[in-house]
């Protein structure tokens, strides 16, 4: 699968990445080359083979729905790039 500039822009948007215009051509080439490597899996005969999502084929363990710990709000907010009144600050989303 060869990706063009539009594909790269679309993928970057899905991944919430901003690209410099100058990078797009190089990235299209690198990503296309990588996809070429990945497409080697197409040669494998996987008819009737179940997908393997977990290396031990274990099912996800569930814990009891109980309060086990309290989040230290101040400690977590202290990591935020911007916070106010116990809340994370982001640019205005409503006018």
């Amino acid at each position: 699968m060869a990706l063009d500039a539009d594909d790269v822009h679309a993928i970057a948007h899905l991944a919430r990445l901003a690209l410099d215009a100058g990078q797009v051509g190089v990235l299209a080439g690198e990503l296309s080359q990588t996809l070429g490597l990945l497409e080697q899996i197409n040669a494998a005969d996987t008819a009737g083979v179940a997908p393997m999502a977990h290396p031990l084929d274990m099912t996800q363990r569930l814990r009891a729905d109980e309060v086990t710990e309290q989040v230290d709000r101040e400690a977590f907010l202290a990591q935020a790039p911007a916070s106010e009144a116990g809340l994370f600050l982001v640019p205005r989303v409503l006018d």
């Binding site: 993928i11 991944a15 996809l35 990945l38 899996i41 494998a44 997908p51």
Partner: peptide, 25 residues
């Protein structure tokens, strides 16, 4: 970006699901 692409609509089966089958092989 590669990960986003292989999980995106229309490509999930061809890449991600196929790779999971190869993982079992």
């Amino acid at each position: 970006m590669i990960g986003t692409y292989v999980l995106s609509a229309g490509y999930y089966d061809a890449y991600y699901l196929k790779a999971q089958r190869c993982r079992r092989l």
